[in-house]
Design a protein around this nucleic acid. Structure first.
Length: 578
RNA sequence: CGGAGCGUAGUUCAACGGUAGAAUGCUUGGUUCGGGACCAAGAGGUAGUGGGUUCAACUCCCGCCGCUCCGACCA
């Protein structure tokens, strides 16, 4: 490719509001341009990189036995209604109508579509297992796009869907995909961490994100120094150490507490440790039910875990007014002690449900302390010596604590908190879709219809490209790894007005092209050497070749990631670049 | 959706209650020619949009739209 003909060129400055390095460099290098928030043009250079990424993914997926196909991007809305996902997706569905008024969802993920195509065939156990996938545009009406290509509203994703006879067969498939993902990302030049994560509606242990450690990422995960444990903060578990378990139970008593509403206010006023306080957080779920989460004062509530334990789909914090009027308690002074009895007091009226439902969910850390203190459901009154079982009984008890840096794993290792970019995930779907969609079955050996067991596996292409740049760059620009570079060599012609140099460099360019080497040739004649070098560094192609008066019949060879240059002949070059 | 901020030339940014300016980029000519070199000439702006205040608005005020950041959210 002649650089003078390449659409999209380098610019000196990135937009001042560019927040991530990958966005700045991809912008300056002429790889992408923004259309509107979260939607990007991928320019020729960027598209070459995306195609390299796609080729690697395709190669590894095919090797793992998966088959590429394509589904429509407009999904009949009835399919989404079948699985009730018009309501429950995390991302806002984008809808569109055709001229007859038929409604479609713009695909953000394609489970329903793939089940739909599979059920168009009469599948038997002999057909299983199989894994089908596609590369296609995905639409997600994200609340907020951010970080250039890191979180967008429209992007190319590889999404794969596996179909198995049962869970044990699925486990094998899942393992294969896990290995395939590691291989894919390794080929692109990064080390991914396989992080346990939340799979929402299903639970279970099969859901992992492939994360590349980076401060630009949005994924917070906890890991041990040896890397043997890695889990998303949503699901990470840790050891809750016993505190004052030897203390005798003291009688419950109410005390004056002229304090503010924070945990620190309680610690200061009573001069007792934070961990001995009970933290009470009141939530409201999508049905209007109140959920009181209680936990040891030095821990925070993990809303994902709370959702699982409570069965809630959506949680929000209760308002101060709700706490006062509906629960008859006081913000900052909520207590599990006798709180349900307060609900029946006459001043509480709820015209809609008449009866207010309140569920108390306790973190098991409350078993690690005795004689806890905290609010008394009245302003400026606290309770001392609250003890679980004796003074309050939770409806549900379990783990709702948020893991953090410095806590220990169950086997005593220190947890380290890290940030990373989620480049891919593998996900157990189980019977979730096959049970909700009619005819999502296969015929087993006994001739009976059975639901198939599914999994899905996604990789975001643009995000992957941005992640490569986040990991591979220096102060001058991008440093593409061989596997995903837009071109393998960047030829710079200097002194191009000299006939002999021009002939020489054109010959070299032609020779390389004939040998099927991907080459970008900076053939501009009106541009200074310095500018060409800067552009080459910014674009980041791994090998730079310079031909000029000074190089004579040789070629100057330099790798992007090194400062060394050497003069070599064309033959040597062809050997080096293969 | 809540909070903060921004919107002026392709880009990065100025100034000013009295009809817009620089750098860079672009075009042309010339000098340079191995790390964004120099000189000269030129093109390029209905100031996001609508309204209000004012003798006068790019400037002040309000609505809308768009964008960025923080938060909420994130199969």
């Amino acid at each position: 490719m002649l650089y003078s003909k390449l659409f999209g060129k380098t610019v000196r400055e990135a937009p001042s509001d560019a927040s991530t390095i990958s966005y700045k460099l991809l912008y300056q290098g002429g790889f992408i341009r923004e259309s509107t928030s979260g939607r990007y043009f991928v320019l020729p250079l960027g598209q070459l990189v995306q195609q390299k990424i796609i080729a690697i993914i395709k190669d590894e997926m095919d090797r793992a036995g998966a088959q590429e196909m394509v589904s429509p991007v407009l999904h009949p809305l009835e399919l989404w209604k079948e699985t009730n996902r018009t309501k429950t997706t995390g991302f806002e569905l984008m809808r569109i109508k055709d001229r007859r008024g038929a409604e479609f969802a713009l695909g953000g993920t394609a489970e329903e579509m793939f089940v739909d195509v599979v059920r168009k065939f009469q599948i038997s156990y002999k057909d299983l297992p199989f894994n089908i996938y596609q590369f296609s545009s995905k639409f997600r009406d994200e609340l907020r796009a951010r970080g250039g290509l890191l979180r967008v509203r429209e992007f190319i994703m590889k999404d794969a869907y596996s179909f198995d006879a049962d869970e044990s067969a699925f486990k094998k498939q899942y393992e294969v995909m896990s290995k395939t993902y590691s291989a894919i990302f390794e080929r692109m030049g990064f080390k991914t961490i396989k992080v346990e994560s939340d799979n929402g509606y299903i639970g279970g242990e099969y859901c992992h994100e492939f994360v590349v450690e980076s401060d630009a990422g949005e994924t917070t995960y906890l890991t041990t120094g040896d890397g043997k444990y890695a889990a998303h903060q949503d699901v990470a578990v840790f050891k809750k150490d016993g505190k004052n378990l030897k203390e005798k139970l003291e009688p419950l008593k109410e005390v004056e507490a002229n304090r503010g509403t924070t945990m620190e206010d309680g610690v200061k006023l009573h001069n007792k440790p934070l961990w001995q306080q009970i933290k009470d957080v009141l939530f409201v779920d999508e049905t209007g039910r109140f959920i009181l989460a209680i936990i040891r004062g030095d821990y925070d509530v993990n809303e994902i875990k709370l959702k699982h334990l409570s069965g809630a789909i959506d949680l929000r914090h209760a308002t101060n007014e709700e706490i006062r009027k509906k629960i008859n308690s006081e913000p900052g002074f909520i207590s599990p002690v006798k709180i349900k009895e307060r609900l029946n007091q006459p001043q509480i009226t709820d015209e809609r449900t008449k009866k207010i439902q309140l569920v108390i969910i306790a973190d098991d850390s409350l078993r690690t302390i005795k004689n806890a203190y905290g609010g008394a459901n009245k302003k400026h009154k606290d309770l001392f010596n609250m003890n679980i079982d004796r003074d309050y009984k939770p409806d549900v008890e379990g783990d709702i604590a948020l893991a953090k840096e410095g806590y220990s794993t169950v086997d005593g290792k220190k947890l380290i908190e890290k940030k990373g970019i989620e480049v891919g995930n593998i996900f157990q779907l189980g019977f979730h879709y096959s049970s909700k969609m009619k005819g999502a079955t296969y015929i087993d050996q006994q001739g009976k219809e059975k639901l198939y067991y599914m999994g899905c596996y996604g990789i975001g292409i643009g995000r992957t490209m941005a992640t490569v740049v986040e990991k591979y760059h220096d102060e001058k620009g991008i440093v593409w790894p061989e596997a995903v570079t837009p071109y393998h060599v960047h030829v710079i012609g200097l002194d191009m007005k000299e006939g002999s140099v021009k002939t020489q460099v054109n010959k070299i360019y032609k020779e390389l092209v004939d040998k099927n080497i991907e080459v970008l040739f900076d053939d501009r004649t009106e541009v200074t050497a310095g500018e060409k070098f800067s552009d080459a560094d910014l674009i980041g192609i791994p090998v730079r070749l310079v031909v000029s008066k000074r190089t004579g019949d040789k070629i100057e060879y330099k790798k992007r990631d090194s400062k060394e240059t050497k003069l070599i002949s064309l033959d040597e070059l062809l050997k080096l670049t293969k």
